[in-house]
Amino acid sequence: MVEFGTLDILRNLLDAAIWTVVLSLIAFAGGAVAGLVALFALVSGRRWPAGIARGYVELFQGTPLLMQLFLVFFGLPLIGIEVSAWSAAVLSLVLFTGAFLAEIWRGCVEAVPKGQDEAARALAMSYPERMRWVILPQALKIAIPPTVGFSVQVVKGTALTSIIGFVELAKAGTMIANATFDPFTVYGFVALIYFALCFPLSMLARRLERTLHVAR
């Protein structure tokens, strides 16, 4: 058994938590880009782009993130593409996040009253102009709370990357618990750190929902 003091355990876990935060930020930023591309394809009204985007969303929403991590990490090398645990974690989480954000934002776009789009058409505005000046500004107000709320799922989803060997908070907790034989203390700290990361985001989402009066 390795002798670790309580402060040593906490310090090592906080160091690993930095990677959890970095991975979450990259996954959310990359997922936002992928989600926007899929969103525009979904609402474009064009058959093929919408069909491809719908297939992407259904695929990543309909399969567990764990399976996606396995397929990327173990599947890509089978076709000659070597990936590290970090690369597999980033790619999987970006695609996973993008699929869910696209669906969240599609619902927000469709929640904008149809009369807004019809009025913009009456003013002879093109599709990009209608989206830029009429639809998206109104959809943004609706989208902010659920988007912030979904970020909590992204943070918690990073824990699954430990299964392919990426050392983030959950993986570090397992390693330290195995070394110290003190799982209660270690996993107690892991849970508290996750709570400290996720609870402010949950509260922010609720506050934004009240502030923006989304229900109205």
Rank of each mutant, 00 (worst) to 15 (best):
K156D: 10
F184V: 15
A99E: 01
F150Q: 11
Q116M: 12
G35C: 02
S44G: 07
L39C: 11
F195W: 15
I26E: 08
E209F: 13
I176E: 04
V83S: 01
G98E: 05
V90I: 13
V43Q: 02
T6N: 14
K114C: 12
L36A: 13
R46S: 08
I26P: 04
F184P: 11
F189K: 09
T147V: 09
M203P: 13
Q116G: 08
T161G: 04
L101E: 10
A159S: 15
A17Q: 04
F73E: 00
V33G: 05
L197V: 02
D15S: 13
R132G: 12
V2R: 14
G55S: 11
A172N: 01
G115Y: 06
P128A: 04
F150R: 06
F73G: 00
Q68M: 01
F40N: 09
K141D: 10
A191Y: 07
V37M: 12
T20Q: 07
V112A: 06
Q116N: 14
L42S: 07
S84A: 03
I18T: 14
V154W: 05
L65C: 06
G107L: 07
V33R: 05
F100T: 12
F100G: 07
I144M: 12
L76N: 00
G98Y: 08
A215T: 14
F70Y: 07
E168M: 04
V72C: 00
G45T: 03
A41N: 07
M131T: 01
W48G: 13
L101C: 04
A179S: 15
P64I: 02
I18R: 12
C198V: 11
D8S: 13
L212A: 11
A179F: 04
E82L: 11
P49N: 11
P49V: 05
T63Y: 07
N178P: 13
I144S: 10
A119W: 03
G115W: 02
L91C: 06
L10Q: 12
V112I: 05
A102F: 10
R207C: 14
A53W: 05
S87K: 12
M67W: 10
R106H: 10
I52F: 09
A205D: 06
A27Y: 00
A27G: 03
I164N: 00
C198K: 07
E209G: 03
I52R: 06
A159E: 09
S44V: 01
G165W: 07
K156W: 10
A179E: 15
F199V: 10
V167G: 05
L7D: 14
R11A: 15
G35N: 04
A29H: 08
S151W: 15
V57Q: 04
L36H: 08
V43H: 03
V134C: 08
I9E: 01
V22S: 03
T185E: 13
K156F: 10
I176T: 02
F60V: 02
F166P: 01
F70K: 00
F184A: 15
I79N: 00
G115V: 10
F73L: 02
